[in-house]
C-alpha cells in the first residue's frame, strides 16, 4: 500500500511526532511504500539540522534521515511554515540575508501542492499531531 504521512507536531511537544516515526518505521518494515512525509505547521522543526540533543536522547532529525534513505521516502517541509519558524535551506538563507541555512539537506522545501498531490495519489494519508 502507498501511505503518506502528514506530521503537524514539533519533535519535542508531546508524543505525536514519535508516533509518526514509529508508524512509518513499522509500515516500511511491513513492506508498504511511503513515498512522502510532509511536515506542516510545528512539524517543520523536524528538519532543523542545528538541533543538538544530549547523547542519551534520541536524535529525532537523524532518525527521519535514516528512514528516508531506507524508504526511500521524500522528506518535505512546507515552505511557508518553515520560513515563518526560521527553518531555511542554503538558498533561502542567502536570499533573505540570514547568517546560515539550518535545514538538513535530506529535507526539501515545497508548497502545499505537493501534499495535495500526495493526498490524490496515495492509498492512505495519515495525520499525526494536532
Amino acid at each position: 500500500m502507498k501511505i503518506s504521512l502528514l506530521v503537524l507536531g514539533s519533535p519535542l511537544a508531546g508524543a505525536s511526532a514519535d508516533s509518526a516515526y514509529h508508524y512509518a518505521d513499522a509500515a516500511l518494515r511491513a513492506g508498504h511504500e511511503i513515498p512522502g512525509i510532509f511536515f506542516y505547521h510545528e512539524g517543520v522543526y523536524h528538519g532543523n539540522a542545528f538541533s543538538a540533543p544530549a547523547q542519551d536522547e534520541t536524535d529525532r532529525v537523524e532518525r527521519w534521515v535514516e528512514l528516508s534513505r531506507r524508504g526511500p521516502s521524500e522528506l518535505v517541509l512546507c515552505v511557508a511554515s518553515a520560513l515563518r519558524r526560521g527553518i531555511l535551506d542554503q538558498a533561502e538563507s542567502s536570499r533573505r540575508s540570514r547568517a546560515a541555512g539550518n535545514m538538513h539537506p535530506a529535507f526539501n522545501l515545497a508548497g502545499l501542492g505537493l501534499l495535495v498531490a500526495a493526498a490524490g495519489e496515495c492509498d492512505r494519508l495519515l495525520t499525526f499531531g494536532t
Binding site: 503537524l8 506542516y40 505547521h41 515563518r84 502545499l112 501534499l115 495535495v116 498531490a117
Partner: peptide, 19 residues
C-alpha cells in the same frame, strides 16, 4: 494558533489543483 489558517490554506491549494 496557526492551524486554523493552515487548514484553509490546504483547502485553497486543493482547489488550485482541482481536487
Amino acid at each position: 494558533g496557526q492551524l486554523s489558517h493552515g487548514a484553509l490554506d490546504f483547502a485553497l491549494a486543493a482547489s488550485v489543483f482541482e481536487q
